[in-house]
Amino acid sequence: MLRSMYAGISGMKGFQAKLDVIGNNIANVNTAGFKKGRVTFQDMMSQMTSGAQGPTATRGGINAAQIGLGSQLGSIDNIHTQGFRQTTNNPLDLALEGDGMFALQANGETLYTRAGNFYLDDGGNIVNADGYYLVGAGGNFPLTIPDTAQSFSIQTNGTVTYIDAAGDTQTEGQIGIANFSNPAGLQKSGSNLFLNSENAGFTGLAVPEADGAASIISGSLEMSNVDLAEEFTEMITAQRGFQANTRIITTSDEILQELVNLKR
């Protein structure tokens, strides 16, 4: 009975972690570039009560008898599927259609994001909401639109062009796309940013629409890939699983109480 109580506690802890991840997903349902999380479980070690025995000339084999000791967190995954695209008609709102991430640079640190809501600072540099410079395909930054420019545009291949004061078309540069063989290995850093890790498999900055990199859609934003219907279904499952594990603890406690009452 003590084993069942501890198994119930482990189940409660696991489902609490699942609810935490679901709550974070729902809270970020309208966050641009957000990638949802997913929790998986594993069983804990099992206690062997009798080992397996092979067949003999006079008797068949016997399977091992084991009692499980509960569950544990297996993984908390980041799911990097394509998010929904929202049209904004703002030329500095950029959505990625395909694989890859925008690269950002600030204070000697490179970060990555799928959130394409960019702005111009007082120097005409293309930055994100935190002032991080958008990095070009050759690793150059910042990408700058002069104050004298009459208008500017960003092509699907990441080329940034503008019309200068004389009415001529000028090319500022090309936006780079960071490619990863395992984007789920990136570490979330907050503020819609990701950090590279040893398991992300960074393969370098690529030109958009080349080497499997995404194309850039100007005037749109990639929104969260959270599906509310799926999250609410998982929330109900986690809630019922948590309740079932509390019943295991309650039932075990009642049996222990009966054992105590045997003395009367």
Rank of each mutant, 00 (worst) to 15 (best):
L111A: 11
F242D: 06
N125W: 02
D211P: 02
R59F: 10
I255L: 15
K18E: 12
I163F: 01
Q174H: 01
G68I: 05
T171D: 03
R3I: 14
A206I: 01
G176V: 09
S153Y: 03
S151V: 04
G108M: 06
A64V: 11
G124H: 08
T169F: 03
D211I: 05
G51M: 05
N245Q: 15
L205K: 00
A166N: 13
A57S: 14
Q187V: 10
M48Q: 14
D147K: 15
I62R: 13
L195Q: 13
N117P: 00
S224G: 05
N225P: 00
S224K: 03
T87Y: 12
D253M: 05
T250D: 13
N78E: 12
I22L: 14
G11A: 08
T49L: 15
T110S: 13
G108Q: 03
P91F: 12
E198G: 13
I22Y: 04
S189H: 05
Q82R: 11
N192P: 01
V160Q: 02
M1E: 10
M44P: 01
S220M: 14
R247C: 03
L134R: 07
N179S: 14
E209T: 14
K263T: 15
A178F: 05
V21S: 04
A214E: 01
N25Y: 08
F15T: 12
N199M: 07
G61Y: 10
T251A: 13
D93F: 07
I163W: 01
K188Y: 09
E109P: 00
M5V: 15
Y132C: 00
G136C: 05
F141R: 01
A165R: 14
K13Q: 12
A52P: 07
I163R: 04
Y133A: 14
R85Y: 09
D211A: 13
D93L: 04
F202V: 03
D227F: 04
S46V: 03
E258I: 09
G219K: 04
T171R: 11
Q155C: 00
L69M: 15
P183G: 00
N199T: 15
M44N: 14
E231D: 07
E234I: 00
G74F: 10
T113K: 00
E254H: 12
G37R: 02
L96S: 04
A214H: 02
A52G: 15
A115H: 01
I177F: 06
T49I: 15
T251R: 04
I126M: 07
A149D: 09
A244Q: 12
A27G: 10
T237E: 14
N24T: 09
E230M: 04
E109L: 11
I9S: 04
G33L: 01
Q170C: 05
N196K: 13
L228M: 15
P91V: 11
T250V: 08
P91H: 11
S153M: 07
G212T: 09
D164F: 05
F102W: 06
G139C: 08
G158C: 06
L228N: 02
N25T: 07
K263L: 10
Y112A: 02
F242M: 07
L69P: 03
N107P: 04
T148K: 09
A137N: 09
F180M: 00
F15P: 00
V29M: 15
L195Y: 09
M223E: 01
Q86E: 13
L73W: 10
A64Q: 12
Q243V: 11
D122T: 13
R85F: 13
Q72E: 15
T246I: 04
T251F: 06
S220V: 11
S224L: 05
N261P: 03
